[in-house]
Design a protein around this nucleic acid. Sequence first.
DNA 1: TTTATTTTCCGAATAGAATTCGGAAATTCC
DNA 2: GGAATTTCCGAATTCTATTCGGAAAATAAA
Lengths: 215, 215
Amino acid sequence: MKKKLKFTKNIFNENQESEKKKKILASAIKIIGDKGYQNATIAEIAKDAGIGDATIYEYFKNKEDLLLSIPVEVTKELIPQINDHMMGIKGALNKLRKFIWWWLNYVEKNPGYGSIVLLELKTSKTYVSNEAYQAARNFYKIVLDIIKEGQEEGSVKKEINIFLARSICVGAIEHIIIRWLLKDRRYSLTQYADELADLLIDSFKKEESTTSKEP
Amino acid sequence: MKKKLKFTKNIFNENQESEKKKKILASAIKIIGDKGYQNATIAEIAKDAGIGDATIYEYFKNKEDLLLSIPVEVTKELIPQINDHMMGIKGALNKLRKFIWWWLNYVEKNPGYGSIVLLELKTSKTYVSNEAYQAARNFYKIVLDIIKEGQEEGSVKKEINIFLARSICVGAIEHIIIRWLLKDRRYSLTQYADELADLLIDSFKKEESTTSKEP
DNA sequence: TTTATTTTCCGAATAGAATTCGGAAATTCC
DNA sequence: GGAATTTCCGAATTCTATTCGGAAAATAAA
């Protein structure tokens, strides 16, 4: 493999992260996801990644930057993945159901990441002004777009405020995940998907039956 | 005022917290609510309370214990307060509307406390095994009781899972508050109360019209 | 191949903040 | 008033993020 050329490192790495950086991020997800941001130490993350403490600072500004980089990088993979799963599904409400199922399932399989995104991130002072916040917005924009689509195709009530509807969906999903993360995680998270989807869909959907003049 | 007797301090203080402890808690709410748990220092809290750093450790086991004590103490005041506001309101769905309004309004007026409860608390490693978690449960039990009451009086659909309904309510409320806390807080939070209540109520309520045989 | 330059890495020092310790000051008891 | 007890806190300790300076490795130049 060709090695990096002089002065080209930064440009070269814009898309292709160095292996070392990826390794640090993986260790950070593992350690922070397990112990929480406060109890995770740079020393332990460095050790897990097989490097010296100081080396982390070659790749990340500081501990907070390391934390915030996690959702930025992971979301880059996640959004294409969920879009892929969405393909071929007809009807906004069916897509909403799929989204709920997919996200619960993902967190159940990656509780460390879920814990970082849903518990640790928001306490970061610089979160909203960071790229990580945009990543979260992009992710939840999927829900907003589904609701919009539903209004356009006529399956979702026109009179509801789509932003409020998104808040209800995302809020409910996150709340259920957070309970699961905080508790022992013994039960399956995915089992809630259908019932939650039923209730949400029921509150958004336009009644099909007696809508037109006379049946 | 009679001073404390030998050996009776702990028993005596079970209900009546010492003034100093209250002062520390007030300063902690102020500082942590403003800067966040990580950026708030014991030194600054102590200074604000007009005492030495080490004195805080006479009243709280450590910084985390201080954080967790905040919701425990505040909830003791809050639950009676909200119950008071609930009095005289007829109908579970009207109570739900009131609860939503009251809680949004409280956070708008006490954003520091809101920030502690909704952003900082859950990252604490010992949260679920702490009294603070019970305090949060007690607080949100109000919502669960309202939904139950609604099913009993016939205003809420019998077929919905009340725990899920509670998750949706609480999740949606918290999500809206968190957005407000993270963003600039320039707009009014209370303004969302009615629209949110409308949407939630609409999804829980039993259709009144054609339920009985023939009107 | 040798030498110069640039990049990567990290051991050791620094600094900031939580927590502990020992004893002084204040209060209560007799 | 003096002994016992409690309250308070200055100073020392410890733990950890972060910085610094330079060694090691990689790359370019000769």
